[in-house]
Design a protein around this nucleic acid. Sequence first.
DNA 1: GTTTAGCACTCATAATTTTTTAGTGCTAAA
DNA 2: TTTAGCACTAAAAAATTATGAGTGCTAAAC
Lengths: 341, 341
Amino acid sequence: MDDRRNSLLKEIVETYIKTAKPVGSKALCSKFDCSSATIRNEMAILEDLGYVEKNHISSGRVPSEKGYRYYVENLMEAEKITGSDMLKLQKIFANKELVLSDAITKCMEIISEITNYTSVVLGKNSSDNALLQVNIIALADNQVVAVVCTDKGVVENKIFNIPDNISINEIIKTSEIINKLLVGTPINQVGTRLENEIKPIIKKQIQQYETIYNIFYDAFNDFVSNNTSNVHISGRTKIFEQPEYNDVAELKRLANKLEDVNFIEKVSSKDENDTNEIKIYIGDESEFDPNVTIIRKKYHINGEDGTIAVIGPKRMDYQRIVSLLEYVDENLDNRKENDGK
Amino acid sequence: MDDRRNSLLKEIVETYIKTAKPVGSKALCSKFDCSSATIRNEMAILEDLGYVEKNHISSGRVPSEKGYRYYVENLMEAEKITGSDMLKLQKIFANKELVLSDAITKCMEIISEITNYTSVVLGKNSSDNALLQVNIIALADNQVVAVVCTDKGVVENKIFNIPDNISINEIIKTSEIINKLLVGTPINQVGTRLENEIKPIIKKQIQQYETIYNIFYDAFNDFVSNNTSNVHISGRTKIFEQPEYNDVAELKRLANKLEDVNFIEKVSSKDENDTNEIKIYIGDESEFDPNVTIIRKKYHINGEDGTIAVIGPKRMDYQRIVSLLEYVDENLDNRKENDGK
DNA sequence: GTTTAGCACTCATAATTTTTTAGTGCTAAA
DNA sequence: TTTAGCACTAAAAAATTATGAGTGCTAAAC
């Protein structure tokens, strides 16, 4: 891969990103100051190397997944984000009362808006949270709310019907026992410790211990399994504006996948133990859909961690998204520092 | 509209519901024991009356909106739901630990699943709720959770960053004042009473009253404006399986509308002051999209009220949906009675 | 050796024509 | 009032024919 070949590939990728149309040799002559035949020769080589493909024998070239990968790893240049993009995001950074997770969500909404891609926030993951406390709040009509909080600031509530023969005081008493004994327990272990440690204790003290045990068990279980609230998708239909999704079957397929929050979560959180680097999953690499690219950044801000990601066509504006995600990450981090002062 | 004409229209509507294809005269001969020419004569009259339409001069007939309306008002027969549908729903009715709103949501998920339509639950509307209590729970790291509960059992929580110069005790103190003075206040009036009654009080007792006031103001405001959590849509993409949405533009348009939760809420809650009757909005009547029908039932169960609705094509299986919605409503209501015993 | 003009060739797309088919309305007789 | 019969329609599908943007390859030019 000599110099010219590199910049030819770069040109092909970037032109295709802009136009969504196969790139022909003639269009590139002017940029390289040579004839179309020369370009054709070079393109034939790029094709042999697997970086570009043809849709049919006489069509222009389209980057292959290998080509995109080579592009993002070797050819893509970092670029500052534009002033107008910057302006829109800074409005959010400036609002200090916003809790981090709300600020992130709003940033990603804006990114969706300005890029016509779909974006995802995978909020704080409760799995590595520890129990901070559980509070029972009595409502009218034989109902209680169990509010579960973790040390990382995840809070969820769940309402329960309680049978007539159970007194609310007993539930509260149980919650106090749990708070005394289980604080600091990783949230996904609370279930078993509840069974092994708490159940024997309340068995002695409380009559209807079985029912009460079930209530708490359900509350925690729901908490652990309730991924839904952790995932926030913006601009779910934005990606449909991209010209590649111009066919009914394709559209339906993608719409279905984008509805499945669990699936999105799984995908966005792959390579868990990876660094904070931006990761780019192109096409099949995404394990989501062969026709999309997912660009992802993990954040660790203020003790919270999570993931932000953008889902777009393989012909995605890689530069732009990478710099937008980095910009969001940096600025929310800064915001924290200023805040703490 | 004599007898035969009625049953002809009924037949046309029901056949079209089943097949999604314009209904021709020949197909109906056997049912009416006459020649296709006779049917054609009758169909011409139905067309003059505006109950059916042709796509082009030589096509079969398709019900018009007026035709559907006449059908649902005069021709449709109530039918028991099938055993297998019943079975699926009864699993949910049987689970007594489920809070009503969860049970309803699960029912509608099933209805979406078995019918290939999209369904909506418009949960308890906080606007006519009254404040029951607000609880402040301290988290680590200068954060508190405000948990707002209403008398109707709506609970929401919101996390706040609190500046260093504010003590958590002062916030809790304020919450106690609010609980003492504002319990029973309609939730949408809490904001103004906070301003007029609480602010003057805490001004005297608390140093950083302005910041604390803002926190509570935001918490309640968020609660009131946060419609999102009230709306639950199941099977958003199910409706795309219907053959009428077989065109890219149509699909995108509908997908966009179904993303807009506020829009759906507005539509599902129209004719607020109407009875509990099932309402059917056909095509343009829906004010949502000319190509859909919305069937809706309000429920008032156990003091809670809300709306369940199904969104499908105009060629929707009216009978089936009507009986499903009624079945759900009745059985969840029963469940309550048995429960209270 | 690299570049380029020239030319034959290919294939998707679009436009055109043809065929098929499922239906209609109307007339006149039963 | 019903029906057989027939001319007529228009959509949908199939076949046909351009059109055009591209290619690869060869042989000459630099």
